[in-house]
Design a protein around this nucleic acid. Structure first.
Lengths: 144, 144
DNA sequence: CATGAAAAAGCGGCCGC
DNA sequence: GCGGCCGCTTTTTCATG
């Protein structure tokens, strides 16, 4: 397993900023040839360092204006480890982190309406034995 | 301002799952021709509904293994509105949300080491008059 | 919105350095 | 590992009906 050198880092930074940057662009910025840039990108993909590419969508314009953090605390700690797996396929839950703090998990959720948020929280409670505390997100200033 | 119909929604979903999906793929899945798919994608980009494309990078393998939530509370609320702008260009701050809760803002940060986290927090305190509370992220189970 | 043709980008392989 | 080449395929782009 070879390390990640500075050129790889620059390629990663460029592709994070623009996932559709062409090999020619990457080559020019890094001073490499196109074929060298290509082989580096392919290696980064194969090693799983580049996990994929995605479009960044304005969720508000799309019709999902409400987002929130949901702090999740298990009622039964023996079931704690199975919680993320059970939450994974619930629509509206964008991400799930385990944290070193009072709640065991922090979720980011996104829904269309206050009513949909209530339904989502109810669904979470029916799915896993937890208590939740919700903090509404008022504005996303940036999310690189 | 035209609305977003079901076909647009499907295009957005596909491009969120794979930001490098080709127009031919989008056309096939939606039943459109390539040129129709192209014009829809272009409109979505022009309207800012597709804000861009980015590579998904495994930050741990990249050498940034530590991430955390940082709750930010202004010491001087008269300066509150200028805080996100000042934090925007600090390296290591991944995202910034304003929230309806005890802290005014929640940051997500990512750094290479505990020492780098300390430096980042010090830099935040030197940049804006706030108190912070940091919650380490132990694991990211998923982040769609 | 569909068709089709030109231009650009990507892919894989090769070789010499 | 890099550079530069090749031919080939896929994708994008744009003019046109």
């Amino acid at each position: 397993m070879t390390g990640i050198d500075d050129i790889d880092q620059r390629i990663l930074t460029m592709l994070e900023a623009d996932g559709r940057a062409t090999l020619a662009q990457l080559a020019q910025e890094t001073g490499l040839s196109v074929s060298a840039a290509q082989s580096r990108v392919q290696k980064l993909e194969k090693r799983g360092i580049i996990k994929g590419y995605k479009a960044i969508v304005d969720q508000e314009q799309r019709g999902l204006p409400i987002s929130a953090f949901v702090n999740v605390t298990p009622l039964d700690y023996s079931a704690e480890s199975s919680i993320p797996e059970k939450l994974k396929n619930i629509k509206g839950i964008v991400s799930c982190y385990s944290v070193a703090g009072a709640p065991s998990f922090v979720l980011v959720v996104r829904v269309a309406s206050p009513g949909a948020l209530e339904e989502l929280l109810n669904l979470i409670h029916r799915t896993v034995p937890v208590s939740t505390e919700t903090t509404m997100i008022l504005q996303t200033y940036f999310a690189h």
